[in-house]
């Protein structure tokens, strides 16, 4: 699909969105480290490690599927 029309692969869009979300969520988790939300198991700081996971997945997709000038 990407080769024939030079369309940006869908995986790239996925990566960009996850990367943006990951950065926002991780940053919030770090900033609010000492102000836990009123949720069950908030002490596990899931915001921090889930944000980091999103960054890893997003960065991987962006790297692998970034638009290139010449088609493969």
């Amino acid at each position: 699909m990407a080769e024939r029309r030079r369309m940006i692969p869908v995986w790239f869009f996925v990566g960009v969105l996850l990367l943006i979300y990951g950065v926002l969520i991780l940053a919030d988790g770090i900033i609010e480290w000492n102000h836990l939300p009123d949720t069950v198991l908030a002490n596990l700081h899931s915001t921090v490690w889930w944000g980091a996971l999103l960054i890893v997945i997003g960065a991987l997709f962006v790297h692998l599927f970034r638009p290139r000038k010449s088609s493969r």
Partner: peptide, 12 residues
């Protein structure tokens, strides 16, 4: 979702 997810994760 509301039980476990705080700001950010709730938005996600």
């Amino acid at each position: 979702l509301a039980r476990y997810c705080g700001p950010g994760l709730l938005g996600l």
